[in-house]
Design a protein around this nucleic acid. Sequence first.
DNA 1: AAAGCCCACAACCGCCTATAG
DNA 2: CCTATAGGCGGTTGTGGGCTT
Length: 297
Amino acid sequence: MGRAPCCEKVGLKRGRWTAEEDRILTQYIEEHGEGSWRSLPKNAGLLRCGKSCRLRWINYLRSDVKRGNITPQEEEIIVKLHAVLGNRWSVIAAHLPGRTDNEIKNYWNSHLRRKIYCFLKSLNDSSFPPTIDIAAINASISKRRAPTRSNTAPKKLELGNTKEVIMLQQTIQKNNNNANDEAFDSKPGSECLGLEAYCEYNDEELGAYEWLDDEIMKLSYMFESGMLVNYGDNNINDEEVKKSVSYWNTTATTPPSSSSSSVYDWHHHHHMHLTGGSVHQWDLCEQDQIPSTLWGR
DNA sequence: AAAGCCCACAACCGCCTATAG
DNA sequence: CCTATAGGCGGTTGTGGGCTT
């Protein structure tokens, strides 16, 4: 027996919400509170899926949702948290009051991803593309535990997925490993980023945020001290990773002929090469789009 | 002025876990 | 313990407005 749909789709409205629908939903939740999303549309008189109502409320209508542009400070926090947490948008959002996971995810996909990639490229063009130590990263990630729900646990990285994050993590790891600074607990090949494994705490414990704050401080130090240099000498041992590399190498190595620079096309412009057990990442980044600094606006 | 393109972001989708019955 | 359902998450798509040609 297949999974039951969240609601009857027949006859339901889709697409953008109207002001009237927003008003009805807001009024209903103000009167009855959040929850019972499945029955809410019917009770409120909305021709919408319960999930759609929930999303609309959480991402847009809630009074504590902060509107307006992401500030440079918020952007910096997003980048640093993402380097630690990966695509765990809800956890990242929890550290940015008034911002939703959807908003941060969109901002990352449309603004930051390319920005960071260009930044890394501009740091050390001669050694570009950098080598990616996926095995070490995955070994590290597998040791971490999600703060709350198991389905938010860090997923194993896959080639072709958030590669720029891998680059960032690897770069930081390499620098951390090479950093002659006692403030960092350097554990080459085992603890990605040189950051402490997320295995001692959960969200119910105060320690979770202490851990995160500590990691943010470390990352902040690394960013600010300019410890971002590319290296490349890692081998891949994991067979699964090799298979992924092979798959990616044979199916995604042909860049499009167009010279589009959109974020969407950015994905398609990437291809990976497996050379001597190392994975290299290639990309193009128009000269005039490389920012002088990552944070410059 | 109009057609086509690009981009940001709102919304949807599928999958997962938690939990109630 | 098992099953159905609700809630939540990340990935992806669609749309509308602005920009370019």
